[in-house]
Design a protein around this nucleic acid. Structure first.
Length: 486
DNA sequence: AAAAAAC
């Protein structure tokens, strides 16, 4: 059985677009999903991203839209007939661009709506009418409420990254959207991971679904080398430096668990001489686009990001992924490291494990059904650096006061930084990072606590800016063994 | 312990 696109008997405009894009043989997910989607049945598909999933559902979807005219409306109107929902703006954009390419020789119109952008251009497009609408949930609900679009003619719904769309954070929005759709419709769910709960929940949205599993669900690509290194929070950056150096890695994603930590880590790494940018959901859409672009263009080497970038982003040839923080959900681990080793390329995934993360690693072991070995990396002695006497001594012109050093001030009314007639000082790192003498951990040791201040009284700061760490005494108290009731 | 998605 040859699985080539030319055997599919796609409608001429679709076949032309596919040929033009250089597609010849189908990927496994395409070979399996396309015939099923063409029948119009519901689908639950487990497939790694980067395997041609978007084409796998959108080509047969477009084919069906072309085959079956919508009888209930005049051809002059363009009701939304297919709705594709995604959990992040970047993904929505990416999928919409692909669909637009596939549909470019058809008369079908497509559009994408997501937040962080002006409503008006989106509204205009929706009012002109589109057959295929790609969206993130929040903004779509906005448009529904503003009556910019009506979804009562929708024949096909696709939930991409379905496990995320069905998770508790998205579910209310999703249910509201689905309540606007006809009950009689085809529903397609795709994800690389399906937890048992999500599977159960998903099946309540599907009618007699066909299950497609091209790779075992919840699996990682075999081309990705997975490493787990024990490291305290302090040592984590040093491990990153060293792995980048010894492996000769040029570019990497570095995942963290919080937006705050994301900005902080990016700044630290930048100070340490690595070209770094940060990507997280508190950045403006403009900044998000710029960060991703800079990474794609190779202008920066490291993209420090939250799970906003964990799923589906199609960036070619990312040689490595670091988990600076172990993800809270084991499923997210699978998605994160799926950013590397795509389409058969080899990749490296390094997860940095501190003492409090062992539980999370155990969760990953359970999900992957694999024993994971936590190693200790012998770190090189860090180079000693010469410090100027004062932090800004080199940059401060003679006779200028220390107060002159802040280069810009923020104008609240104008919502923008105001340049002062100053200079941007060269900022030597104050970070003890490079200067700290290194103590090699015992083989197999896991850091017991991350940089706990030696003196409990020193926790917090007078300004109260820094929250005290967890109550250390409680952590070290021996726990009573629990006895099962008789 | 968090992130994402609307203004």
């Amino acid at each position: 059985m040859t699985s080539s696109f030319s055997n599919l008997s796609l409608a001429e405009p679709l076949a032309r677009a596919v040929a033009e894009m250089g597609y010849e043989s189908m990927t496994p997910i395409q070979a399996q999903a396309i015939p099923v989607v063409l029948t119009g049945q519901d689908v639950m598909g487990a497939a790694q991203t980067g395997t041609g999933k978007t084409a796998a559902f959108s080509l047969p979807l477009l084919q069906r839209l072309l085959q079956h005219e919508n009888a209930s409306t005049s051809p002059a109107r363009h009701p939304v007939r297919a709705l594709v929902l995604l959990p992040t703006r970047e993904l929505a954009d990416q999928v919409a661009q692909q669909i637009a390419l596939y549909a470019k020789y058809t008369k079908l119109r497509s559009a994408v709506v997501f937040g962080g952008m002006d409503m008006k251009p989106q509204t205009l497009e929706l009012k002109k009418g589109v057959e295929v609408l790609v969206a993130t949930p929040g903004r779509l609900l906005d448009h529904i409420e503003a009556k910019n679009t009506v979804l009562n003619q929708v024949e096909y719904v696709v939930l991409d990254e379905a496990d995320r769309m069905l998770d508790i954070g998205f579910l209310p929005d999703l249910q509201r959207i689905l309540s606007h759709l006809p009950k009689q419709r085809t529903t397609l769910l795709f994800s690389a991971t399906f937890s048992p709960e999500i599977k159960r929940l998903a099946s309540s949205y599907l009618q007699d679904p066909i299950t497609i599993e091209v790779a075992r669900p919840n699996q990682t690509a075999s081309t990705v080398e997975q490493r787990f290194y024990a490291a305290t929070d302090e040592d984590k950056r040093r491990v990153i430096h060293q792995v980048l150096k010894t492996r000769g890695i040029k570019q990497a994603f570095i995942f963290v668990n919080s937006k705050l930590g994301c900005g902080r880590l990016a700044r630290s790494l930048e100070r340490e001489g690595l070209k770094t940018t940060a990507l997280h959901g508190d950045k403006s859409q403009d900044e998000r686009i710029k960060a991703l672009d800079a990474f794609k263009q190779g202008e920066v080497d490291l993209l420090v990001c939250t799970d906003v970038a964990a799923r589906g982003l199609d960036i070619k040839d990312v040689p490595a992924v670091f988990n600076f923080d172990v993800p809270f959900n084991a499923e997210d681990y699978v998605h994160r490291i799926g950013r590397t080793g795509r389409a058969g390329a080899s990749g490296l995934a390094v997860t940095l494990v501190s003492g409090s993360d062992t539980r999370l690693v155990a969760d990953i072991e359970k999900l992957l059904k694999t024993k994971l070995n936590i190693e200790t990396l012998a770190l090189d002695e860090p180079p000693r650096t010469e410090r100027p006497a004062s932090r800004y001594a080199e940059a401060r012109p003679e006779g200028r006061s220390e107060r002159y050093e802040r280069p810009e001030r923020f104008d609240r009314a104008a919502r923008s930084p105001v340049q002062r007639g100053g200079f941007r000082p060269a900022m030597p790192s104050r970070d003890p990072f490079f200067d700290r003498p290194y103590e090699a951990p015992a083989a197999g040791a896991i850091a017991q606590w991350d940089s706990a201040p030696p003196n409990p009284a020193a926790r917090g700061t007078p300004s109260g800016n820094i929250k005290p760490r967890r109550k250390l005494a409680a952590l070290f108290k021996p726990t009573e063994p629990t006895v099962a009731p008789a």
